[in-house]
């Protein structure tokens, strides 16, 4: 058994990138650095998706999160210019109470993770998931799929309405 598997190495690498970036998002004092760290966390998660044989999800993650949401966030950071002030990004309830609360929640979660008792199966060979997901969208998940388009339309109109109002106020 001298064969060195690449899987654990890549996993620990991606996990380290994800965890370090997530902690960077949480603890950075500069909101801009937080956003950059968020990119690392999202990319690391996309890599973990690939390791979980979810190739389509990984691509969607990169397109939607890194290409869409993150760019939107950076725009918002740049448009709200005073966001760089340290006084704005300081703590609301303080680190100690929130760490206490995190400790409570974390204890429960770690107990749940270590508790186990899941109905595990042997991991099947990784294969492309796009066909399965496409079939699912048009059969089992047709109702959520159509509702999703309505939600996206509502979000589109809502975002336009919210931004229009500001323009009018500025002019008048």
């Amino acid at each position: 058994m001298t064969e060195i598997s690449l899987f654990p190495i890549v996993f620990y690498l991606l996990a380290a990138v994800t965890v370090v970036s997530a902690l960077g998002v949480a603890f950075s004092n500069n909101i801009f650095y937080s956003a950059i760290a968020l990119m690392g966390a999202l990319l690391g998660t996309a890599g973990l998706y690939v390791m979980l044989a979810a190739d389509f999800l990984a691509v969607v993650q990169i397109f939607v999160y890194v290409g869409g949401i993150l760019v939107l966030t950076l725009f918002a950071i740049n448009l709200t210019s005073r966001i760089g002030d340290v006084s704005i990004s300081n703590r609301s309830i303080g680190r100690l109470p929130s760490l206490l609360m995190l400790g409570l929640v974390g204890t429960v979660m770690v107990r749940a993770v270590l508790g186990g008792g899941w109905n595990l199966v042997d991991v099947p060979e990784a294969e492309p998931t796009i066909a399965t997901i496409g079939n699912g969208f048009l059969t089992d998940y047709i109702l959520p799929f159509e509702l999703a388009s309505l939600v996206l339309l509502a979000a589109l109109v809502g975002a336009v309405v919210l931004s229009r109002k500001e323009l009018k106020e500025e002019r008048g």
Binding site: A26, I31, I88, S89, R91, S92, G94, S98, L102
Partner: peptide, 8 residues
């Protein structure tokens, strides 16, 4: 929990 910055 700790951010007062809405984007955060």
């Amino acid at each position: 929990l700790t951010r007062r910055n809405a984007i955060g």
